[in-house]
Design a protein around this nucleic acid. Structure first.
Lengths: 229, 229
DNA sequence: TCTTGTCGGATTGTTCCACAATCCTCTAGC
DNA sequence: GCTAGAGGATTGTGGAACAATCCGACAAGA
């Protein structure tokens, strides 16, 4: 029998190389998330293939990957377009977010409290970014914080869903004019929520989470209504 | 201004033509779900392309679509394989299911009760299938019932997640030996759950749903443990 | 006998090209 | 002003070729 290499198996993911399609998808993803590719932009196969020096086939595979993450939409015989979020989409995203994060909070009822380490760490990163005035980083940490909350449910699929939602949320964040003004109050409430989780006040945490997401949704939807038209 | 054709817009999806890749994915999906392609089977690009009379390019696109639905897994330079569900996967699926269906139930607290129509309809189909002794159809109706429960949340994304989970659950159902023995008790509990929803006993419905999913998970995991080895 | 190095076949990853199918725009005609 | 149709541009699909990679078999050495 071979020795016990379970510890190594945990790092198996680091072995995974990536295909050209995956790398292309990653590049496009970053551009979309950071707003360098505006929503609604048509992604021409020929133009992009030339720009990135990959073939149309490879590019099309990358498009499929991005469509998974709902960052682009694919219309038959018309091509792929950078996703444009409607206020309805934002509301929908927050509905799913509530379901997933609520599952995390509920799981804490009968789970070891040391699972909160990831939540704590994300919150700390957000606070550090705040002191540096880097509100972009605060936004990133905020997403990680909420992914950690959902992660309390200890479910790969929930984590995957949240990761996808996080990418979509980036698009939504792009709609708010001031990152500082938007994130600052919610960072405070992240701290409140984390406190409730730490002290085991689950009922109150559920209530706070519900209100938190409701308020965030409202802020973004209103910002989109003003901005968009 | 044009007339109000919102009623027609609801049927817009029926207009959507489909690409060859989508049709190929559908065919493969059916074969996988019905167990004609055993879990773990390697799907050779060359062999399948010849069997279905499509090019490798098209087939690879179909594989991407199936990978989305988690019905196949793609390993770099090794190809795609029909997904093999582990007991851990089943447990994970039920964790996400609980989160999504719970969101539906909770939404009923402040939603019009006529939203229950879809739930009622799915339950009726399950009962009709039972009287005909068609336990395969009962299984289908059971999935629709629970999709309808999650649908109470009125969220496209939740519906999409549930649809995906339903496909994965088909794989799990394949693990239980007797469709009758498996579905019969859960059909009874679907009726109980529906009754609680109809009468607005939301707290009890949440409790029943939690226990229901917990029991179903246990049954399937045990069946896999016996069957698999 | 067990381990390790190396080779070769088979399969996937990627590119390139060709052509059909479809969509969009623009124009001619009423 | 509106409709119908032509034309160009783009995507959908098929096919072939080569590179990269994996896997099993075989050989060499301890």
């Amino acid at each position: 029998m071979t020795g016990n290499f379970d510890a190594l198996a945990a790092d198996r993911s680091r072995l995974a190389r990536s295909s050209a399609a995956q790398r292309v998808a990653e590049v496009l993803r970053d551009h979309i998330i950071e707003g360098r590719l505006a929503p609604g932009t048509r992604l021409s196969e020929e133009a992009l293939g030339e720009a990135l020096a990959v073939s149309r086939n490879t590019l099309r595979e990358a498009f499929r990957l991005l469509a998974d993450q709902r960052l682009v939409v694919h219309e038959l015989n018309r091509g792929v377009f950078v996703k444009t979020l409607s206020p309805r989409d934002v509301a929908d995203i927050y509905t799913l977010r509530l379901a997933l994060e609520m599952a995390g909070v509920r799981a804490l009822r009968c789970a070891a409290p040391e699972r909160l380490a990831a939540v704590r760490a994300a919150l700390a990163r957000a606070e550090a970014a705040e002191t540096q005035g880097d509100w972009g980083a605060v936004g990133t940490a905020d997403l990680h914080f909420h992914q950690a909350v959902a992660g309390l449910a200890d479910s790969e699929r929930i984590d995957e869903c949240m990761a996808r939602l996080a990418a979509e949320l980036r698009l939504a964040f792009a709609a708010v004019p001031s990152a500082h003004g938007f994130h600052e109050p919610f960072l405070r409430r992240n701290q409140v929520l984390a406190g409730l989780l730490e002290s085991g006040e689950i009922d109150d945490a559920e209530l706070e989470l519900t209100r938190y997401l409701d308020d965030a949704r409202t802020v973004i939807v209103n910002a989109m209504a003003e901005n968009g038209r």
